[in-house]
Amino acid sequence: MMTSLLKLDNVNTHIGQYHILQGVHFEAKEGEVSVLLGRNGAGKTTTLKTIIGLTPASGGSVTFLNQDITKKATYDIANLGIGYVPEDQGIFGDLTVEENIKVAMRKETDESKEKLEYVLNLFPDLKKFWKKAGGNLSGGQKQMLAMSRAFVNDSRLLLIDEPSKGLAPIVIEKVMEAIVEMKKQTTIVLVEQNFIMASKIGDSFTLIDDGKTVRNGAMKELIEDDELKHKYLGIG
């Protein structure tokens, strides 16, 4: 049996006076890609933000590597080995590609340099625009930069929020290939609206609706369950 790296148990999150998450649970198993699905406004982004501690949970628990991280500060959580690629990519627009990556590199060891080498081979565009301001990159390049930035630290887990958003199909293809490649080195929790993509690279799925988990399971189950797909994703 594979161990679960990350576990959310009945997670509740309030933002201001709004009760956004009202019972999210799922597990991400080591080495897998777990996909979060759900319609717009379901609470997928908030789930990722809760894991990384930007919108801390008000109830339930988040466990990572057998540690309770529910109440930990964001930077502590990140330092435990969780990388975050936000929905808007969170690129520092006035910093160059190089500087964006430098901010992220917590220590410059041989290992982290190796990782950097690795992502630069994965995304040769970044090398090409090494000195260009992050704000001037194309949408796809920003996505690649954001993923590299999360990856260069020795992250055991990457949280990636809708990497395909607003990208041309051919670029999506590239990004997805990169995720498949990264999966060899790390565990991934992926938010993805594009069901075709999600079903191709996901191992397991979690369906979120109205801030609650409505179904977990292996991706295969979802692919075969037309009713579920229709009800919550409006497809099939």
Partner: peptide, 9 residues
């Protein structure tokens, strides 16, 4: 926020 998410206090 992003700076924190990169592990910086």
């Amino acid at each position: 926020d992003m700076v924190q998410a990169l592990g910086i206090n």
